[in-house]
Design a protein around this nucleic acid. Sequence first.
DNA 1: ATTTTAACATACATATCTGTTTGTATAATT
DNA 2: AATTATACAAACAGATATGTATGTTAAAAT
Lengths: 213, 213
Amino acid sequence: MRRTKAEAEETRNSIISAAELVFFEKGVSNATLEDVAKAAGVTRGAIYWHFSNKTDLFLELYNSVPMPQEDMIAREIEEPGSDVLCYIEKAAGDWLDEMAGDEHRQRILTILLRCAYSEDLLPVLQRQQEVDDRHVALLENAFAKARSEGYLNANWTPQSATKALWWMMGGLCSDWLLFGRRFDLVAEGKEALRRLFGSFRQVAAAMDIPAVC
Amino acid sequence: MRRTKAEAEETRNSIISAAELVFFEKGVSNATLEDVAKAAGVTRGAIYWHFSNKTDLFLELYNSVPMPQEDMIAREIEEPGSDVLCYIEKAAGDWLDEMAGDEHRQRILTILLRCAYSEDLLPVLQRQQEVDDRHVALLENAFAKARSEGYLNANWTPQSATKALWWMMGGLCSDWLLFGRRFDLVAEGKEALRRLFGSFRQVAAAMDIPAVC
DNA sequence: ATTTTAACATACATATCTGTTTGTATAATT
DNA sequence: AATTATACAAACAGATATGTATGTTAAAAT
């Protein structure tokens, strides 16, 4: 029974939504298109009409999620004068807020973290990696500005601060996403951020770090 | 053709070794037992003789890898008097050394990070999580001792220092393992550790961290 | 020296999952 | 109003993975 164009778009969206849930629950490679179809209340015929195969569906699912505004940090680097570290910390905190509030992004990131990289969905992972690389580059620029304006203390370089922040955020989110969200992401995350940025800012009494203990 | 007991043990081990490689390359759920058998130079018959199914094989693979000596930190907490933070930092650095040098553990951890948690291999993930929890508890004890002996500065609590270290190590290793080992884990990891522990030790000039910027 | 049994290889039966094809009802087009 | 193309459902065919059953050989056991 032929549907109107709007209705067809609806079923397409419902398929994508169902795929998100099913992929999240069973993993991409364990999930079958029959599972997705059942969850969407259609048959596999509908899926094959709108998408060419499972990989394509996964790609479209990935594309359907509006990914974080990367220019947030970029814009705030332009902002002249005021303490850049505060902006970076705020940006990181905002990221946590968004993550905690957006179940779609939680599921998508969980799926991406868990999915074994088979060759077919390699483009997705590569794209994700490019996004990450741009983020890191932006952070380094921001920290470099902080350094040049005297906000970053001598114990840290822009690169090392970037990595420390990046890895802490990554570990934090992985821990939260992969292990059943057992703690308050925003509260604990922001506390960790406050302490880490405290050590970025803090004027050291003893400037030199001993290489060995 | 019936083999001697030692030979049978050999083929069992070769199956496990092959499974490690195949699971690592294709992901657990994408890998077929035929793949594993071919990689091990046997038929599926041998696999079904030694293991009951793929999940069991994966579990035995996980068990076959001697997991890190957890008591390392524990023992070093007992060591009285000297700077506990140095011991923790050294323990973390040693962990990185071992990880970088042990390809088995690299593959196992990569597999664990990537495998979608289907119900059957949930016991493995739970056990891994228990190991993690014990590690965290040990770290907290160690940092508490550091705090009580005056080595941990006022900006950090034992809990927050534990989490910062834990998440940084987790993010570091995930980044390295999942994204093709694009950097020098030991060098960059230890540098990050040195800076982070520097901020643990560092006597703050301004003791209070501003809540808002 | 037989017999038994362990350690597999081989063959088979079954169950999915996939991709395609065909059918069909209805919206859109003319 | 008749035709056409769309948006699917249903049926089909092929491949693939799994688990089991059976066969086979040589090591142990008797």
